[in-house]
Amino acid sequence: MNSELRELYQQVILDHNKSPRNYKKLDAATHASEGRNPLCGDHLHLYLILKDGVVEDISFEGNGCAISKSSASLMTSMVKGKSTEEAEILFEKFHNLVTGKLSEDADLTDVGKLAVFQGVREFPVRVKCASLAWHTLHAALKDENKIVTTE
């Protein structure tokens, strides 16, 4: 396989696509939002239980490509237990990562497993796939009652 392609479809991404984590509906959700990429047909519902400014639980359901699904899966794993401020900071770092705004030698330790999405920067049309879940999270945290799209 081509090296850029291998970089995009890393094993962790393929694994999360196949067995997404936190893939369910949270009946006790205090916050929820919906995200769509109309052109690709990506569609996800995000559920959160927020308590004292902390993401106590988070889950998602939906349809999408490997990049959008694994991104949602990894995002839910990463932000569970974090404060809303920490989640927003992570979003910003993630966004810089996938849009190639981080320098080559940037320290990726604080983004943890999200580093696997670095390959997305070579695929401008796939940035919206990777960031859909994060935009949807942002809307849920802001309690914006609207459908998010990244088109």
Binding site: N2, E4, C65, A66
Partner: peptide, 19 residues
């Protein structure tokens, strides 16, 4: 997902539409 098919085929030089 069709989008992943489209990206992989693109790297083979094949232009198809997905969506």
């Amino acid at each position: 997902h069709p989008h992943d098919i489209g990206t992989i085929l693109d790297f083979e030089g094949i232009a198809i539409r997905t969506g």
